[in-house]
């Protein structure tokens, strides 16, 4: 499964993930301290500039991720226009888009493996459970595409006997398959030494 980090290589890709995450927290807190349309608008433009720096492919990918916010921007604009406070509505739109844009920038410039390393470091106090967490993450990544195929297979099996779209019933064998797979994988783990005491 492909993560959401961008294949376009930027300088930010080589910065440590922990540092980027800290910077993101600080920047977001600072952002929420701003109120007015002008500073917030400038922040938004600055974020767009950051997206534009690595080139048009990166910019387009970043803008595509922001596109999902349009219903909320519309709500803000309409709401504040109706209450006679349009500038505030636009300011809030800028703030939201900037916050989301900054966060996505970190996601797009950080490899999944680097993010996972941060998580494992944060989990150091958990001691022996760390191995289980690392394994659990790997299992999700491995099995999600498999389950998507099984889900599609079950949907196909439904459509082979019904002209209607698959109903909720299909989820029952889907879960049964997942539970069976969980048993098989547990067995495979035990055959390879198990996870010790959990």
């Amino acid at each position: 499964m492909i993560s959401l980090s961008s294949p376009v290589k930027t300088r930010a890709h080589s910065w440590p993930a922990g540092a980027k995450l800290m910077a993101l927290c600080v920047a977001t807190v600072a952002l929420f301290g701003l109120q007015h349309i002008v500073p917030l608008g400038l922040c938004f433009v600055a974020v767009l500039a950051l997206y534009a720096a690595p080139g048009p492919v990166f910019l387009r990918a970043g803008l595509a991720r922001l596109w999902g916010l349009w219903p909320f921007v519309a709500v803000l604009i309409l709401w504040h226009w109706a209450t006679g406070d349009l500038a505030q509505g636009v300011a809030l739109g800028f703030r939201m888009a900037t916050a989301v844009g900054l966060a996505n920038l970190v996601t797009m410039t950080t490899r999944l493996s680097d993010m996972m390393a941060v998580v494992m470091w944060l989990c150091t106090p958990l001691g022996r459970h760390r191995r289980a967490i690392g394994l659990a993450m790997a299992l999700v990544i491995r099995f999600t595409p498999i389950f998507v195929l099984k889900g599609q297979g079950l949907a196909l099996a439904w459509r082979a006997r019904s002209a209607r779209r698959p109903g909720w019933r299909v989820i029952v064998p889907f879960m049964a398959l997942a539970l069976d797979d969980a048993d098989h994988v547990a067995e495979a783990l035990r055959a390879r030494g198990g996870l010790g005491n959990l």
Binding site: K150, G153, L154, L156, A157, W158, R159, A160, R161, S162, A163, R169, V170, V172, P173, L177, D180
Partner: peptide, 23 residues
């Protein structure tokens, strides 16, 4: 024409566990 097709053709998949829906 799915409705008519369902009366004409049926399919048996490879793995029964991937096609049985009911308990």
């Amino acid at each position: 024409d799915r409705r008519a097709a369902l009366r004409e053709v049926g399919i048996l998949f490879q793995n029964p566990d991937h096609q049985i829906i009911f308990p």
